[in-house]
């Protein structure tokens, strides 16, 4: 069981969030299995894992596809806690789903308590241009405001599907490296901090 490889492959935990029916599952399945599911089946919570080559490095991506339906909103907090990066999906054909991203963002920031958590705003169903309700401009404005990238995807045509996952993984990786550095550098400080706290207490 405890067969540890010499260099453990990195594992990046990605969480798909967004309103119901915007295509979270569709994007995930397209990414995982190159398959597009036409019929809509609301998700509860699905787990996927895949080995990918990220900039020449073998890594594992763990995808948690969450429920968009409001019925499941109560359990979101628990899921979000384990995520290292978030794809916040809305459908460009549905303004309501775009408005909901604000709420998801807030919930994530609240749970993670981290302004710089790796995060991508994703406008899905870009193949349905004629039914577009959310302009590119207003979506990227919001992304700018949050300081996150904005990408438009289509789970149907596979446009930018890989991009969003890879971009997010890169951000997660960068974040981890940065954290490692600071953690190592600050090892002593941390101890000091603890001591200080004790004194105060």
């Amino acid at each position: 069981m405890a067969k540890k490889p010499a260099v453990q492959t990195a594992l990046h935990k990605v969480i798909m969030v967004g309103s119901g029916g915007v295509g979270k599952s569709a994007l995930t399945l397209q990414f995982m299995y190159d398959e597009f599911v036409e019929n809509y089946e609301p998700t509860k919570a699905d787990s996927y894992r895949k080995k990918v080559l990220l900039d020449g490095e073998d890594v594992q991506i763990d995808i948690l596809d969450t429920a968009g339906q409001e019925d499941y909103a109560a359990i979101r907090d628990n899921y979000f806690r384990s995520g290292e990066g978030f794809l916040c999906i809305f459908s460009i054909t549905e303004d309501e789903s775009f408005q909901a991203t604000q709420e998801f963002r807030e919930q994530i920031l609240r749970v993670k308590n981290d302004e710089n958590i790796p995060f991508l705003l994703v406008g899905n169903k870009s193949d349905l241009q004629d039914k577009r309700k959310v302009t590119f401009q207003e979506a990227s404005d919001r992304a700018n405001k949050w300081g996150v990238p904005y990408v438009e995807t289509s789970a149907k045509t596979r446009e930018h599907v890989d991009k969003v996952f890879y971009d997010l993984m890169r951000e997660i990786r960068a974040r981890k490296m940065e954290e490692n550095k600071t953690n190592n550098g600050r090892g002593k400080d941390k101890n000091k901090k603890k001591k200080l706290k004790c004194v105060i207490l």
């Binding site: 509860k44 919570a45 948690l64």
Partner: peptide, 18 residues
């Protein structure tokens, strides 16, 4: 097995294994 939907459930839950 690298995909499971849903990833939790009561006995009798319909599970898709990928």
């Amino acid at each position: 097995v690298n995909g499971i939907s849903p990833n939790e459930g009561f006995p009798g839950t319909r599970v898709i294994i990928r």
